[in-house]
């Protein structure tokens, strides 16, 4: 059963246009002109219970607008949204009990209070009895390893510790779906990895459905089994991570150092990325040419060193972004 069902979702924004300079300002006061921007244009998808899904796209693609519509912050112009069988537009309060939100760039914690006090407060927001909150805090404290700083005011915490607390605060009421909007923004690689592990563990322990947006490809690669890519308000790809890799990873990068120069121009299935005499970097389309054929062309005896690698996922994704334009 799908836990999120979105059909033909649309949202337009009216933006006031102003011509250059002071004259333009006067003009826009007398006769304002507006431009309509289609932020989300005919988006449909569904998410299954317990899934970890990556919802990605370039800046201004409509990601945040979509998330905001799913959580009831914004109202859609047309199309339908069902989150846990609720309509966010009409049943905002009811839905709020079922979902949790972490917006990486927006703080919801009280900075001068300790995480513990903050969690108690959020317990009150969701009408959870004191004893239950206490138990839940202890449980999450262990899962998220907050013991050493749970009584330190939030303003004195590091960014990584703060994000962990933000996530815990949004889990106090045991949401069925967690919306994470760029949870690892600004974190160092070690902390990032730590947060990812915690998110994974949470998904496993509580079967929480995770809806993640991130610009960090390794977030997506390490966490999600399915990717939805959105660009200019439209879904350009909705596929499993495996398929994405399979379809786009039919290309290998060969980076080699040869004894003598090799001329490969014009060979089918081979694209020369860099050719600096004996140092050669080529892309091999394995559908057209096998790696062994490529190696034969290079002549194994001629190779001093070689490195064969996949096309980085980051590149695949930016290619998909560009294809949509």
């Amino acid at each position: 059963m799908s836990i999120i069902e979105v059909k033909k979702l649309k949202k337009e924004f009216k933006v006031k246009l102003k011509e250059k300079g002071f004259k333009g300002t006067i003009k826009s006061i007398i006769k304002p002109k507006y431009k309509k921007i289609k932020a989300v244009n005919d988006v449909s998808f569904s998410v299954e219970k317990g899934e970890m899904i990556a919802f990605i796209g370039p800046n201004g693609a409509g990601k945040s607008t979509t998330i905001k519509m799913l959580t009831g912050i914004l109202h859609n112009d047309s199309g339908s949204i069902k989150v846990m069988d609720l309509d966010p537009k009409k049943d905002r309060k009811q839905l709020a009990y079922e979902i949790g939100c972490v917006f990486g760039q927006k703080e919801q914690l009280w900075t001068h209070l300790t995480p513990y006090d903050n969690f108690k407060f959020f317990g009150a927001v969701y009408d959870i009895p004191e004893t239950v909150v206490e138990k839940k805090i202890n449980e999450l404290k262990e899962l998220f390893e907050l013991d050493s700083f749970i009584d330190t005011p939030v303003r004195n915490l590091s960014l990584g510790q703060r994000i962990r607390c933000e996530i815990v605060a949004s889990l106090i009421h045991e949401p069925k779906i967690l919306f994470l909007d760029e949870p690892t923004i600004g974190l160092d690689p070690v902390v990032k990895d730590n947060i990812r592990k915690l998110i994974k563990r949470m998904n496993k322990e509580y079967k929480t459905t995770i809806f993640l947006t991130s610009h960090d490809v390794s977030d997506i690669e390490k966490l999600c089994k399915r990717v939805i890519i959105i660009n200019k308000g439209k879904v350009v790809l909705d596929d499993s991570m495996e398929n994405l890799k399979y379809h786009y990873l039919n290309k290998k990068i060969l980076d080699c150092k040869c004894k003598e120069e090799v001329n490969l121009s014009g060979e089918e299935g081979i694209n020369i990325i860099k050719n600096k005499g004996v140092n050669l970097k080529i892309e091999v389309d394995t559908n057209k040419k096998s790696i062994s054929d490529a190696l034969k062309l290079l002549n194994p005896d001629n190779i001093i060193d070689i490195n064969i690698s996949n096309v980085p996922l980051e590149e695949i994704i930016s290619n998909i972004y560009n294809d949509g334009e």
Binding site: K68, T71, G72, I73, R92, K93, Q94, A96, Y97, V125
Partner: peptide, 17 residues
């Protein structure tokens, strides 16, 4: 500045909170 977002995702009256 968009701070109403925080209250809109909570199950309470937005204005009061």
């Amino acid at each position: 500045n968009g701070s109403l977002d925080n209250y809109l995702v909570q199950p309470k009256n937005v204005l009061l909170s």
